[in-house]
């Protein structure tokens, strides 16, 4: 306990482990390779400011933006897509989520199959679904609604089945002990405790859908994105910018309303 300063029992500085070094080297190599593959070009960062195309973004033609036929009409369509797909997707998600939770699944095969299917469905990006639907049933909001319904279902079952997983199993056991059949037992034993979360998750999915439905039109699935895509192809970036401003204001307002509703629910 009373050592004197000196070169006595100093430990040797540990060398970096070969594994650490090789992982770092591999990651660096991969990053360099990937950067070349994507055409990494840092000059964009400074040349972007002198790009003559910027002039095309300005000034914003507000007259055109506020002309109801140009933006308002498709915007309403966007909401209609978001609303119907939230209702359908979240409605379907209720039984599927119960099938996907180990607590409430009626049997093991149902549990495994529903999980596997939903994982695959979620692995397909939302706009891929939109494009598939557009191809299958034609351009327009109808296809977009189908795509977003699937997307809502995939997101909702993930969120809600986790809520069900975490629910108190006590009431469910009580309902089963009383001899209840599966569905009624769920109805009385689990649903009341998780229902506020269900509504809150649904509102959240609606927010996601409003955002997603804005870009659906880029692949022909209706809504405001259709106008965005058209103006983009005519190189009317001033109009594009004007629409974006409106979109963000509206999306922001919806989020604020939905967030405050969700806070009151949970």
């Amino acid at each position: 306990m009373t050592p004197t300063p000196g070169q006595s029992n100093r430990p040797v500085r540990p060398r970096l482990r070969t594994r650490t070094v090789s992982i770092a080297a591999a990651l660096t190599a991969f990053t360099v390779f990937a950067a070349r593959e994507v055409g990494f070009d840092p000059s964009t960062f400074w040349e972007v400011w002198s790009n003559p195309l910027w002039e095309k973004f300005w000034p914003i033609p507000w007259d055109w933006v506020f002309d109801s036929g140009n933006v308002l009409q498709p915007f309403v369509e966007t909401f209609q897509i978001a609303t119907i797909s939230t209702i359908l997707g979240c409605g379907l998600a209720l039984p599927v989520s119960f099938a996907m939770s180990s607590l409430t699944a009626p049997n093991r095969p149902t549990y495994l199959v529903s999980r596997a299917v939903m994982n695959v469905v979620r692995a397909v990006p939302d706009l891929f679904w939109a494009k598939l639907m557009v191809t299958a049933i034609g351009i327009g909001a109808f296809a977009g609604s189908w795509a977003l319904t699937i997307f809502s279902l995939a997101v909702m079952v993930k969120l809600f089945s986790e809520t069900v997983d975490g629910a108190d199993p006590g009431p469910l056991e009580a309902a089963r002990a009383a001899g209840g059949r599966h569905a009624p037992a769920l109805r009385t034993g689990i649903l009341p405790t998780v229902f506020p979360d269900y509504v809150a998750h649904s509102l959240y999915v609606f927010e996601l859908n409003v955002r997603a439905s804005v870009v659906l039109g880029l692949v022909g699935a209706g809504g405001i994105g259709r106008v965005l895509e058209a103006q983009r192809q005519f190189f009317r970036f001033d109009r594009v910018l004007g629409m974006l401003v409106i979109i963000f204001v509206v999306v922001w307002i919806i989020e604020q309303v939905s967030v405050s509703l969700r806070k009151r629910l949970i």
Binding site: V76, E77, F79, Q80, I81, T83, I84, I87, L132, M133, T135, A136, I137, G138, G140, A141, F142, S145, W146, G222
Partner: peptide, 30 residues
């Protein structure tokens, strides 16, 4: 409220009965 929201939404989607009925068939064909 939910029913009204559904009706209002669907009214904007240019859905005709035969499109609605045809959709599952189209999807299945693909």
């Amino acid at each position: 409220v939910i029913v009204v929201a559904m009706v209002w939404s669907v009214s904007g989607l240019n859905v005709t009965l035969d499109r609605l009925l045809g959709a599952p068939g189209d999807a299945w064909a693909i």
